[in-house]
Design a protein around this nucleic acid. Sequence first.
RNA 1: GCCGGAAUGGCGGAACCGGUAGACGCAGCGGACUCAAAAUCCGCCGGUGGUGACACCAUGAGAGUUCGAGUCUCUCUUCCGGCACCA
Length: 680
Amino acid sequence: TYDNIAYMKAQLKSLGFALDWERELATCRPEYYRWNQWLFTRLFSKGLAYKKTGIVNWDPVDQTVLANEQVIERRGWRTGALVEKREIPMYFLRITAYAEELLSALDELPGWPEQVKLMQKNWIGRSEGVRIGFPYELNARQSVLWVFTTRADTLMGATFMAVAAEHPIAAFAAERNPEVRAFVEECKRGAVMEAELAQIEKKGVATGLFVSHPLSGEKIPVWVGNYVLMGYGEGAVMGVPAHDERDFAFALRYGLPIKQVIAVGDAAFDARHWQPWYEDKEHGRCVNSGKYDALAYQAAVDAIAADLQAKQLGEKQVQWRLRDWGISRQRYWGCPIPIVHCPACGDVPVPDEALPVKLPEHLVPDGTGNPLARMPQFYETSCPSCGKPAKRETDTMDTFVDSSWYFARFCCPGQDQAMVDERARYWMPVDQYIGGIEHAILHLLYSRFFQRVMRDEGLMPGVSEPFTNLLTQGMVLAESYYTDAGGRREWVNPADVTVERDAKGKILSAKRTADGVPVVYDGIGTMSKSKNNGVDPQDLIDKYGADTARFYTMFASPPTNTLEWSDESVDGSYRFLRKVWDFSARFSRARPAAGADRKVRYQIHLELSKANDDIERQKFNTVASACMKILNALDRLDEWDDTSREGLSILLRLLSPIAPHLTHHLWRALGFGEDVMRAP
RNA sequence: GCCGGAAUGGCGGAACCGGUAGACGCAGCGGACUCAAAAUCCGCCGGUGGUGACACCAUGAGAGUUCGAGUCUCUCUUCCGGCACCA
């Protein structure tokens, strides 16, 4: 890690960025992560950090937890073994306590792209509905199965219930019914990822248990459904096949009754084929629903909620899609979670004076679980509360914790007595934040959450939002290739691949240049460490210099667009800068002549005013385009005079932030005054 | 599957409020210079027809609104980002 920091720091310096290195920090240093731990213990005492079970991917061969990215087609990436779900205790941060505020405050962020605000809004996912209880009796004990629905108006059409495989009712049924047990076991082998869960075939099995309809008293069968999520709502849903497309398919598959309770005009209901109007909230009216017949959506929901409330079997409720943030990682290289497990006192937070809990830095991970858990020197400790022997928590924190507040720490170099100080109160929020669009939800939402948590700890009173203006730069895409050796993919950098293409540029075959081993083309995707398809800036700097690297990245596309990396365009950028240099050299040797060319003067000023507009609109690629036009205009002149001198100075001013090394040199060589170098 | 984007020549992209589509660059082609090549410079460069002026077609596909649509509306296709343990 430290070697990488040194390498990349040298790159940033040679690219000529104006950065204040006195503020440099590394989140893996105890001076930084001790404040993660300090804040965690504060949140723990407030109940904003808590422990509950969470579900993880378990590789049964390596005996280790896998990240979602390490599960490829349901198998572990190293072992190829089928991955299992496993429930383990984990620590969570209660981001849902801030759901309302995180949502409503989006309206007060005019400096954020609409696209990002919309994604966050949908992610937080506020929905108003009704919590409904379906009473049942199990072993002579009265109980209630709770569900949440946004369509309480369809309650009279409920013909089945579906519960998650982890639901207590499913567990109860599994004990007595082998068919249910087999199905629940099958669900356990399934995926953890939402994307995969959403695409699996909707399947279920009847538990043989029944609940009562809260209004009609009818018996309703309870099923276990593989599409019901334990983490959302109550882990159970009511099935209304006539008015929910997913329930409709489920009912057809298992021969469950489909009962129409919503009508739109005279449209005929066909229980064999789904039609979109079945879900129509706007025009639908209740039918076959007794006293609720003819009511529209809102009126029906209100009436049914009121009747349920009277029976104590329901009430209106606001439900969030947002879930609490699980921060436990069973990994070595991270910030240790500052908790001691005491047989007598339970989970005890490490007191301030014992912080930081330092991570041993010289362990060698072998890929099978967390080495901290095999290191008694680390985990053997005594209880901070009673002093008896106790075991230290060996899980580390999600690295998103580190990245949720580093910008506030940048404000406070040298501060070793507090997480942040009055300088953070002075500088925060960040005026202009820049990051990839891939961070639109997780990182940016966690940071907004952390800012509020730190505000409420009194660290930055009155500062609720971390970033005033947000620019989401586009992703840089590149081709990626891998060798396929027995199911294990080894990613080969595109620079090391020789490709054969057809006339249209489509890839026919590819092989590793060094040894001719055939490689598989994996398409165009994000430049990433894991796919080894990045471009090392150092190679560009070595070959072309820093100005070309800067010029290409500014010119290639608008900053918010995605960009496919193109070596040819890098070369073109270099040649343009060469041309500026050559022109300037000719200019400096020429003798001034009389007779200003008004047309050139006009064109240069036109381009300058356009370029200024483009800078306002953050369209830097057209600024580069303006530079090229000005140069071409100047280049066509036969004589040099005051106009061409002014044109050249304008060109250098536009170029100076993009190609600072070149323009700085030319500025001195051509004897321009300092005002010329001030960028517009 | 769900949420958010994108699609314009051989390629990256430009077109600001709905008003001349293809700025600028790359690649390509032709020419100048050179013994030759590189570099540099000049010219051409969406498609079809025409010697030419020019005409017609063309912004992923299909409809719609409008005097006028790359731009607005609807449907669809493909690609990209995210989907909570890549960060």
